[in-house]
Amino acid sequence: MNNPYIPMPARIEKITTENEARDIKTFDFSFVNNEDKDGFLFLPGQFAELSLLGFGECPIGIASSPTEVGHLLFTVKRTGFVTKHLHRAEVGDTIGIRGPFGNSYPLDLMEGKNVLIVGGGFAFTTLRATTMYMLEHNNRGRFKELTIVYGARSPGELIYKQELWDWEKSTDLNMFITVDKGDERWKRREGFVPTVLEDIAPSSQDTVALVCGPPVMIKFTLPVLQKLGFPPERIFLSLEMRMKCGIGMCGRCNIGHKYVCVDGPVFSCAQLDELPQEY
């Protein structure tokens, strides 16, 4: 019987500092053991526990798509004890990964429909995974129109910048990038994500909306989506909770009777309406 608490060793192949504040880094991992690599089957939206021996673990969304063969990305903001030490790691260091855990974005439901992605700040990680998944050329035909609204506080805080500029030029998707406040070099849109969303007013017809961002963005985005005609069954959020085990046993990440680690992290607004407002 396997001990589910043993992390799989993974080597850091590349580290990218994503923002001006230098507190968001993307780590690209490769598993040390081939059987771990082959066994790590996941879908966009899932997460894993990153483990630093001697420091602990923290749950982080997987930022890459399973279609990006040879890459396993996690974008980590330096926030607490474990992430602080993870940020001190260097290329070539080995850390541990446990997972994948949780559910994914509703790919089956999204198939054959338009997809609207609304993201804010550093919470864009699993939405990036979903975007990369849909843009993969074998998958692109499975989804109709793809629209992304993504924003950050300032130009320096946008993550995955090169990809954002590439997506902006691509005809495969409609990309709207905004910042709360620009600087003298900023030539693009200014304004909060919910406001920009309201201006663009994408159709809710045959469309699934995926939303992930800071609480304040979500709070103002949901009424806009509602106004645009999105029913709660077709709005999906990815939630965060303090977690330990990741497998529904340690008991701390519940919202009502749902555990975010196994029943989530992705929930539809219709599901959340049934649960206590305690997240």
Partner: peptide, 16 residues
């Protein structure tokens, strides 16, 4: 049955 998971370290050795 709720539990916490933490690392205990002494020198370079430890246990989760």
């Amino acid at each position: 049955h709720c539990f916490d998971i933490v690392d205990e370290v002494a020198g370079s050795k430890g246990r989760r």
